[in-house]
Design a protein around this nucleic acid. Structure first.
Length: 417
RNA sequence: GCGGCUAUGGUGUAACGGUUAACACAGAGGUUUGUGGAGCCUCUGAUUCGGGUUCGAUUCCCGGUAGCCGCCCCA
């Protein structure tokens, strides 16, 4: 005997058994439905991209690509990366057709993304993400507000209530103006403060202040006050969201959102449940994603939300509905020698649009009936010697126990209606 | 990359260092053979791997591996 292969999936990725797939479909369906209800169009691309796409933004990115992505060399000696995020891809696609697209463009996608990292709660090596973007809108405020409203609505469409989550909004332009007003001008200090602010809710106040004083000795008190009181303030985005009836939104000056392309509004949605207190979704405004491709600058606003964090949220708040899906009709041959007659009968029902499964197992009739009832089918049809001989069948409604008899065509019409 | 915790049937759990490793669920079969989810009966099936301590290890120690939870990072 050869050495046994492991039944475990590859490190950090998941198998989707039917019960998991049902949840995954529910998440994807809800995402699509929400995005399309805002008039967004779906796009997709390959998981493979040339590595330059991710390295082009400087040495920092090169390191990121080398350490945290799946990158390999193909047989043609090209360096290839499994996409770790969707934004560069969609920027490439937009840049490629920017002359023919009717801006503003509203696009969404549900790509699978890969990152080479140690997995932990809420983070695995392959995940799916709803990505929504509005490109090239002149009215930036409206685009920002619509984007956040879409994110909000998707959670509502999962059955969430406002109290379950909170939307936190910040703005990089406003932060910069604030720092400048304090005389903090150099980029390095601003970057350090931003990075520290990102940990504001995680660390002790004293630790925060200690580090802050080291970076900006003269402005530490003012910054602390600004961050601490941010919830009591508002800006154009939060006011507009309030006007749309979205009230679980707050300014959060500690919000940082990494250090890449965001240039204006940034936002995250947090789970309010202490058991799952984490960010479920994040996004923001970027001025320029396309000049890398030699095209004019096209800005936009977008967000991404992951399937893993979404599922954690739904489980935490008990928002996963009963998703059991079985065939609507189970055909039960009384003996395996009638299985093919059963398949024949099933064909009639399937052609009428009734999902139909033939129980071709060797179990006894009583067991088959039990199973049909157990798996949640709506109807069952027994196919045995008498029925075949007379071409007349009995259809049983499992919900109320009633029976109807007739030809297969008649019964199929009845179930279909 | 760093740290902590865990590892027993398919799943979830139990077992003072001492008989045949227990229980529940799931699965298979039966309940006298053509009709309901129950009940009852039966069966299948496990100590992650490699060392060590011991008369004896699921239990204690060391290491590997894997998983989980943090840190770093977060696209």
């Amino acid at each position: 005997m050869a050495e046994k292969l492991s039944t475990e999936p590859y490190k950090g990725v998941r198998d989707f058994y039917p019960e998991d797939m049902a949840i995954q479909r529910h998440i994807f369906d809800t995402w699509s439905r929400t995005a399309e209800s805002f008039g967004f169009e779906r796009y997709d691309a390959s998981v493979l991209e040339p590595s330059e796409l991710y390295k082009s933004k400087g040495a920092e990115n090169e390191e990121l690509v080398n350490d945290q992505t799946y990158t390999f060399t193909d047989r043609g000696n090209r360096e290839v990366t499994l996409r770790p995020e969707m934004t560069p891809t969609v920027a490439r696609m937009i840049a490629s057709r920017h002359k023919e697209l009717p801006f503003p463009v509203r696009w969404y996608s549900i790509p699978n993304l890969f990152r080479y990292e140690r997995s932990q709660r809420g983070r695995v090596r392959e995940h799916w993400q709803l990505n929504c973007d509005i490109f090239g809108a002149e009215d930036q405020l409206s685009a920002d507000v619509e984007m956040i409203a879409l994110a909000y609505q998707s959670l509502i469409n999962f059955g969430a209530y406002d109290e379950m989550f909170s939307i936190r909004v910040n703005d990089r332009v406003e932060m910069k103006e604030f720092y400048h007003s304090l005389g903090v001008i150099d980029e390095e200090s601003i970057t350090k403060v931003t990075r520290l602010n990102d940990r504001f809710h995680k660390i002790e106040r004293s630790e925060y202040m200690e580090e802050l004083r080291q970076i900006v000795p003269g402005a530490a008190e003012a910054i602390l006050e600004f961050v601490e009181k941010s919830e009591q303030t508002e800006n154009a985005v939060t006011k507009a969201l309030n006007a749309l009836g979205i009230n679980n939104v707050k300014i959060d000056r500690s919000l940082a959102r990494g250090f890449d392309y965001y240039t204006g509004t940034i936002f995250e949605i947090f789970d309010n449940d202490p058991k799952n207190n984490r960010s479920m979704l994040g996004g923001g405004r970027y001025d320029d994603l396309t000049s890398l491709f030699g095209e004019e600058r096209i800005g936009g606003v977008g967000f991404g939300m992951g399937d893993v964090t979404m599922r954690d949220f739904l489980e935490t708040h008990d928002l996963i509905p009963n998703l059991r899906r079985s065939a609507n009709l189970i055909v039960i041959p009384t003996d395996t020698k009638f299985n093919l007659e059963g398949e024949k009968a099933a064909t009639t029902f399937r052609r009428s649009g009734v999902s139909t499964l033939v129980d071709i197992s060797a179990r006894k009739l009583g067991k088959k009936v039990s199973n049909a009832a157990h798996c949640g089918a709506g109807y069952l049809l027994v196919v045995g010697e008498d029925e075949i001989a007379r071409s007349e069948f009995i259809l049983k409604n499992l919900a109320d126990g009633t029976e109807a008899s007739g030809s297969l065509d008649d019964l199929a019409k009845q179930v279909a209606s």
